[in-house]
Amino acid sequence: MEAIVIENLEKIFPPDIHAVDQIRLQIAQGEVFGFLGPNGAGKTTMVKLLNGMLEPTAGSASIMGLDPLKDTTGIHAISGVLTEHAMMYDQMSAVENLQFFGEVFGLQKDETTKRALELLQTLQLDEAKDQKLATYSTGMRQRLSLARALIHKPKILFLDEPTSGLDPESAMAVNQLIQQLANQGVTIFLCTHQLRYAQELCTNYGLISQGKLLATGTLEQLRKQVYDGYTVRLKSSWLPDTLHYTKIADDEIEFQLEHEEDIAAIIRDIVMHGGNITHVSSRKMSLEEIYFALMKEAEGERK
């Protein structure tokens, strides 16, 4: 079953800002879907549309078969949402905040407390559990917000920039938790502009720019849309004349190859001509490179 189905969804803010522009998307249950784009691309608007917070200008969506506009509370009961603007209560401690939100989600007090303490420990906040939120740093607040989004064991998790403001150690703890949830079958809709971070976690991607969906699919599928070959980096004292390359440093170059096996013939040629090779490496296009290539293409089309 598809967890999220989006059909030609559109949101236009006055005067004529197309925040989400005719997006079609299907996300399977248990998938970690990376919704990627720069700030202002329309990621947060999409989260709000899917949770019934905004009314679409056109199109429709369904979350586990529920309509965000007709069954908003039903969707809220099965999803956890972490957005930049959704804050918690400064005058309450971390445990009190989680207890309150647990009760609002219909959990019993004992159950909420148990779950709150577990989450605080997982997110390394157990030592500060009784501190008022007013004393919390940005990173601590962000982790607590994640705990809040998870308090009722949601089936779908909407995470909008979950590692923003986190130090590397905290970001790792958050990543591990997201991975763990994905392994348990929770569907994750992850919005971020940190493409390297997304590549570590996501199984599927949707790349968005100025409200338009540029491409969707797995990393392999996205590569096929842009370039599926290899980028080879070579450091050598001699280079064949036939090679088309880009110079990176004095004796270091980069060139592209369709098949990785072709590297052997080039190396053989260099060695036979008495050249000294000090470095050879090959890699496929990263998500970041794919994204920028697609962005460039989209900009070209717009012009």
Binding site: H76, H85, M87, Y89, F105
Partner: peptide, 14 residues
């Protein structure tokens, strides 16, 4: 003002 209302709006309460 403190942006806690938005968090509350994401709860399963109408």
């Amino acid at each position: 003002e403190k942006r806690t209302l938005e968090t509350l709006l994401y709860s399963p309460l109408s």
